[in-house]
Design a protein around this nucleic acid. Sequence first.
DNA 1: GTAAACTGCTTCCGAAAATGCAGCAGTCGA
DNA 2: TCGACTGCTGCATTTTCGGAAGCAGTTTAC
Lengths: 302, 302
Amino acid sequence: MKHLTTLSLIEAVAKARSIRKAAEDMNITSSALNRRIQRFEEEFGAPIFERLPRGVRLNPAGELLIQHIRAQMADLERVRSQVADLSGLRRGHVSIACSQAIQPYFMPRHIAAYRTEHPGVTFSVHVRDRDSAEDDLRSFQSDLALVFEPRHLEEFDVIVSVEQPVYAVMAVDHPLAKKETLRLRDCLEFPHVVPSRHIGIRYLLDLATGRMTKKLSHTIEADSFEFMRHYVQNEKAVGFQFPIGLNIANDTRLAFRPLPRRDIAFGHLALLQAKGRTLSVASARFANQLALALSEEGLGVG
Amino acid sequence: MKHLTTLSLIEAVAKARSIRKAAEDMNITSSALNRRIQRFEEEFGAPIFERLPRGVRLNPAGELLIQHIRAQMADLERVRSQVADLSGLRRGHVSIACSQAIQPYFMPRHIAAYRTEHPGVTFSVHVRDRDSAEDDLRSFQSDLALVFEPRHLEEFDVIVSVEQPVYAVMAVDHPLAKKETLRLRDCLEFPHVVPSRHIGIRYLLDLATGRMTKKLSHTIEADSFEFMRHYVQNEKAVGFQFPIGLNIANDTRLAFRPLPRRDIAFGHLALLQAKGRTLSVASARFANQLALALSEEGLGVG
DNA sequence: GTAAACTGCTTCCGAAAATGCAGCAGTCGA
DNA sequence: TCGACTGCTGCATTTTCGGAAGCAGTTTAC
């Protein structure tokens, strides 16, 4: 929108940390961009960028402003979505950040389901660890976040929150697969695939093993559950994952065993949005659908 | 600010309900204003005004938009106030809507106290009944509202809420002034000054007398407590007011007696702000001061 | 050490956009 | 029917904005 050009230019400069680079990105000359910023700072009453030898950087006033700019843009999008909604046509865009576990089965299924009802709605899905997902919400890059073990719950509005046990994952012919119920220490007897730091399930593993004599062996560390799923079919190793990230009912090559709560805490899966923000119609509806599905699946098998 | 001109023009048109009138108010020609609006509607993707024979009116999309516009402007003000704050100088503006009872003693005292510490801060005080005070908050015309018996508490953030008993107010030589404790029905035996509808205390009186055989006599109805205070000195009548609106300690011409809770409910005095909004530094600080004072004075004698 | 490669910023000039003026068609009330 | 109001539209003018080129300063590379 026209009246937001200066604001989006400022955002581009903040991101590029350079007026010239941002000018290229936005397809104008650096001189024009430079003057726009000077004009804005003048009528704003204070500089918003620090001028450094190698470029520019937001000063504290700029940090405050950029937050306002992002909020303003996101809110205008919300208004447009509501207007489109009341004129009958259901269109819009939903941007969601989610943990890795959500992305193979849960998210595709629900996006597809939603789109059969509202084909005009587009989606962007960002796989993020819990920290970057929260950053996405704060900067309005994502409307929603569905993450395990969020860190700063108080900074966001929690739409819904459910618990899931940690499952041990192994090949069907793995020795442990013979046992009906597994303990965490059983798993640690075998080689195991440990998720990287920043991944929610790793946090739970560290907590659980912190008070055990038997420790995690970090021989195989991976930031991809995809990798883990395939690895345990090659070596006789054990992996860990939440049921929502597994295809328990249909997977014939892998065995799955829930670990008891007294061994390792259940994972908290929360659907979040930026605090106090009004979501666009499409995002709000999709959030509802997810919330419903989550509270039904609950602890379930996924 | 430059990038908000179109938006404030739209707001002016919405308020004036006429493009030509708004153009005069904003010191441009109607043709220029007309084209600005057409251009905006085009890039917005939908008309925001209904064209009527006698002018224009916001359509539903426009209603959504104008709310966004007002929120943006208020939020930009907040940013500027925070920026001014971090550059050291404490300036800013506080706009507050309050019930009539607040305005003679409580509000002047606290504004004066605040301004001795922050002389750069300016104030605007709007005396409003509870409904219009809420409208003011919704349309961002006031940052804060301090009102008795607010109607739609759930639409706002309640910063603090205290209770106050209703006092009977009469001349010192009034027969009832001889009694140490008064009941509501005692007061109704005498002529009494009834506040107009829309005034919080009237709502409590109606509630209280609803279940009594003795009813209110509407011979003297006034929307001004100032009037009431003076009237009860002329005729031997009784008035009603909350202690916060009285100068109990120093007033030698009037007698004051609290009415018991079982006769008439205590008044709820609430300090409100628009839901989810971040107040400017000055407003937030002033709200803190009020909240502190209110929770200390509490039920007190004012 | 010096040259190249960056940076933000400024000047000049032409193009684009916004404005004001005058006038159009339509509606309403006296 | 007439005047007063409404929103809207060409046209000429003014204002603003953007692009090209160049300046001064700092960092990096050889």
